[in-house]
């Protein structure tokens, strides 16, 4: 039973784990690059393309987790001036916008990946297919939508709880 829940936690944090590995690789390879150039006088020729690849994956693969951990910033000044009922309507509209924009990015990024499947291009030095590197983007965008949904549900739950608490105190 306990083992299963641990596996589930791992699965639920798969994005963080992959991004974390990319971060580790980025740090260690960059440091190794310094040693190879400065000490060994044999610079890595392929470093830059791997750095870019790691960077892209860190940014997009953990983008969903950034929703989960509420890391995305928004300007709340104006909305908070409205009465609460209208605020709720606005929240729904915001959710709609997020889904539409991410959905659009999802579709277009699939088109982008298809371009590289068609032309079979790969990176200059290590010849890693770009379709593989960019293939993470549509997946990451889908993950963003899923994580956004989770954070919305959490938010609604906490609002409901607050309302219940408030009713309790009123009594």
């Amino acid at each position: 039973m306990k083992k299963k829940s641990k596996a589930l936690i791992l699965l639920g944090n798969m994005d963080i784990i992959i991004a974390g590995i990319a971060l580790g690789a980025l740090i260690i390879l960059t440091f190794m690059g310094v040693i190879m150039r400065y000490v060994m006088k044999m610079p890595f020729t392929w470093l830059e393309e791997v750095q870019l690849w790691c960077m892209l994956w860190i940014v997009y693969i953990s983008a969903g987790a950034a929703f989960r951990t509420n890391n995305h910033v928004a300007i709340e000044v104006l909305v908070e001036m409205f009465p609460e009922k209208i605020q709720k309507v606005i929240e729904i509209l915001i959710a709609l916008v997020v889904y539409v924009v991410l959905g659009y990015l999802f579709i277009q990024s699939i088109g982008f990946v298809q371009l590289f499947i068609r032309n079979g291009r790969s990176t200059n030095m290590l010849e890693v297919p770009y379709s593989l590197i960019y293939g993470a983007i549509p997946i990451a965008t889908a993950l963003m939508m899923i994580n956004y949904t989770i954070s919305l549900i959490d938010q609604m739950k906490s609002i409901n709880n607050k309302e219940i608490e408030q009713e309790d105190t009123n009594e």
Binding site: R37, P43, E48
Partner: peptide
């Protein structure tokens, strides 16, 4: 000989 020279990133 042995000097580190920057070139554009290609093989």
């Amino acid at each position: 000989r042995g000097m580190i020279i920057r070139v554009p990133n290609n093989q």
